[in-house]
Design a protein around this nucleic acid. Structure first.
Lengths: 288, 288
DNA sequence: GTTCCGCATGAATCGATAG
DNA sequence: ACTATCGATTCATGCGGAA
């Protein structure tokens, strides 16, 4: 368990003392979740092991058993989430004997029966997807980001993720070249809102439900499951400083890192001892 | 019914006579489909009315009745499709009382029970999507393009839709040439010749399963459901000249136009008399 | 310091081979 | 026949070293 206190200077040049906790818990998420109190988490953002992936740590969940495996977990997540909180689930179906498996479709239907609202489906467009060539399909360059809520009324801070829309963007969109039509080079709607202050005075636009982000594959130290921008974007969108973010499948610690950096408390659960250790190392490194 | 004969000069400068038919049929697609013979269509590409859309023509299908309404149609489509043919379904779920409806999820599951293979889900990323702002969601800038097949083995002509590579391609090509020269000077190495020849002159890459295309908003005459590039892309990918393309919800005639332009026969079915008339007008205009 | 270039590295999938 | 493992395929990205 990691508990940290930091001092930060906020955007208005006022010195504030912010106490931010980053708890990294070793254990099976279902058991750990049962110990968390009701209505205590503002945002759950996670990327659970996909079917037949991460066999070493999760034993490789069979696609046919995936829904059955996940439903008890989502039930606990529903309990610990605050009424106005949000659950963002990063997932993609595997190909089984030449066709897409339907476990994600079934999961959505079953989670609604549990009481979840399926508010939206964002698309994560991975520009640098895995290479390969097959006779019957192209490379898979997108994943689902399913937004679930406990009720229709939830917290959403849209202004925090606005993206710059300069004149160049308008011109580009007007005069789409042949290449532009085929390839995505535009940053609008990509979810990049890093230095919004730099763009003050320019025109800002709301993003769409398609996020264009590259994976961080080249980082040798820790093979990040998803790029930091991804949880960071949802944290800015669905929480405010001081809120609590939960990731029941923490992996290498990405969610905890970006939560800490954004002054949000976080709870990360990881079943694998090696990943748990790695997560703590990464958090300490990125939050020095 | 429109029957047309055109003369074309093909790539080898040999004058050939190509007979391409574009049949545009007025009627309810379920009734018309029943008259089509088994295993006669190479590609079905369509954008059916979404739930509660086009109320005037289809009476506004209730989201809860959508699957029930579509299944008899998809059953006929399965029958008329050739064994190695493909069905591309452009669809997106509507928002019902604040959340995404699950009729598309249910449709996929039910169509598999009918015998369809759900091979892949392409994403159509609409860069210039409909403007607007809502307190609880962003603009919807993507739609599903569901690929269904009759069997695991189907026709696919991947080379027809290759896209230009990134800038690094030139560098890579240059380097390969350098390497090739060095190898030629230093050693005989018969095995290397093949590899190099594969890359020479190659500046194209295979696309992914995310299509970035802008909608055609400029045309005032008819609010086109999808841009011509969309059916055109799938026609090139899944058929060859002389094949038969079917669109059971033709609308303003886009599928027939691009089929004709690509030397594919087409069958378009449209229930609404005004749209049927418009489709014929558009086809005649674009194929002069 | 910049910019440029080479290089390793992926939540992959298929088909062939082996047990 | 059915499952398990392995090699081949392929391209955007960021890092590190070099000019």
């Amino acid at each position: 368990m990691v508990v940290t206190t930091i001092e930060k200077i906020n955007l208005f040049n006022q010195i504030t003392k912010t106490q931010v906790r980053a708890d990294v818990i070793l254990g099976d998420c279902l058991n750990v979740l049962k110990k968390l109190p009701d209505n205590s988490v503002d945002l759950i953002v996670t990327s659970p092991p996909y079917a037949d992936q991460r066999k070493s740590t999760y034993g490789g969940i069979n696609p046919d058993k995936y829904v059955e495996w996940f439903l008890p977990i989502s039930k606990e997540l529903l309990r610990v989430l605050k009424p106005k909180g949000t659950f963002v689930l990063n997932i993609k179906e595997k190909i089984v004997s030449g066709e897409r498996h339907t476990y994600v479709m079934e999961l959505i239907i079953e989670m609604r029966k549990q009481g979840w609202f399926w508010t939206e489906e964002f698309i994560w467009h991975k520009k640098n997807c895995f290479p390969g060539k097959w006779p019957n399909r192209f490379r898979d360059s997108w994943e689902r980001l399913l937004q679930f809520n406990k009720q229709k009324d939830f917290n959403m801070y849209q202004e925090e993720v606005m993206v710059p829309m300069g004149d160049w963007a308008k011109t580009r969109l007007k005069n789409l070249s042949e290449t532009d039509k085929r390839r995505d080079n535009s940053r609008v709607g990509s979810g990049f809102g890093k230095n919004v202050s730099k763009w003050v005075g320019r025109e800002l636009a709301y993003p769409t439900n398609v996020l264009v982000m590259a994976t961080e594959s080249s980082n040798k130290k820790h093979s990040a499951v998803f790029p930091k921008e991804l949880p960071s974007w949802f944290i800015k969108l669905f929480t405010k400083p001081g809120d609590v973010v939960l990731d029941p499948f923490l992996g290498s610690g990405t969610t905890s890192i970006v939560s800490f950096q954004a002054d949000r408390n976080s709870i990360g659960i990881e079943i694998d001892e090696q990943y748990h250790k790695l997560a703590i190392e990464n958090i300490n490194e990125y939050t020095k």
